[in-house]
């Protein structure tokens, strides 16, 4: 089967530093895959290469079999590759309703409509309501994003990415900084993501990794160190060695 997302010999060098070292990686359709690694392992660089924020030095990136290596970030999103950010990247002055509505309308090609009032298309509204419901944002839809509780902002972060109707979703530490009381809601929401979306989770929090992922890849010094099922990786003594003494939070 064609992988949902694939990299072949991906390399990124910054001057003399090799941040991504010949990574060949497959994300299977419908996967629940986690990418872990100690600080400075190059997880962020890897994500930035996948999403197109950075251009690789060499190698290929394929989205559902199609080469997207040279594609601009926004075009990759339009092809079904969305991400969330480790630190909230939201539109502070807009409401969750507007934010989700924007993502939905952009996906449907409505972003060029300058003559139509926002919210006059039924199919967009239906989807907004559905997404707000799924991510438990219904009761804060009209509030200014900057004023939302942090946990709600994290939910909105995922909701916005989800609104792009991705086939591949990259979750960059979705639970980072969420207070204990709100964590459960967030984890439940992530777990309930529909199966047709292939998810790559970048995470430090081993609870979340073990409860969510089916496969785990370990990145060390920019290279893929090992990959396997949760069982295999969690019992791998070399992985333990890599993590031993390493700070687990970034």
């Amino acid at each position: 089967m064609t992988p949902a997302l694939e990299t072949r010999g991906l390399v990124k060098r910054f001057g003399g530093l090799t941040a991504t070292d010949d990574v060949t990686f497959r994300l299977e359709p419908g996967a629940r895959h986690a990418l872990i690694g100690p600080n400075g392992a190059g997880k962020t660089t890897f994500i930035n290469l996948l999403t197109g924020v950075l251009a690789p030095t060499s190698g290929q990136i394929l989205l559902e079999g199609e080469d997207v290596t040279r594609l601009r970030p926004e075009l990759r999103v339009q092809r079904g590759l969305a991400r969330t950010f480790q630190i909230n990247q939201l539109f502070a002055a807009m409401t969750p309703l507007e934010t989700i509505g924007l993502a939905v309308s952009e996906r449907m090609g409505g972003g060029r409509d300058w003559w139509r009032v926002i919210g006059s298309k039924r199919e967009i509204l239906d989807e907004i309501v559905e997404i707000a419901d799924r991510f438990r944002l219904t009761d804060v839809l009209g509030e200014r994003t900057a004023n939302l509780a942090y946990g709600k902002q994290r939910l909105l972060e995922i909701a916005v990415a989800f609104a792009c109707k991705p086939r591949v979703l990259l979750l960059d530490e979705p639970a980072a900084g969420v207070p204990e009381a709100e964590r459960h809601e967030l984890l439940a929401t992530v777990a309930a993501l529909p199966r047709e979306v292939s998810v790559l989770l970048i995470e430090h929090d081993m609870d979340l990794v073990f409860s969510f992922a089916e496969r785990i890849s370990v990145l060390v010094n920019g290279a893929l160190f090992t990959e396997g099922t949760v069982e295999e990786v969690s019992t791998d003594p070399r992985v333990r060695a890599v993590y031993l003494g390493e700070s687990v939070d970034e």
């Binding site: 970030p73 009032v117 926002i118 990415a161």
Partner: peptide
């Protein structure tokens, strides 16, 4: 319009605006 909304999102956070396509 939706176009205007996308402008406001760019003003707020161009990085994320790219991130939603």
């Amino acid at each position: 319009s939706p176009f205007g909304l996308s402008l406001r999102s760019i003003r707020d956070n161009p990085l994320r605006a790219r991130g939603i396509g």
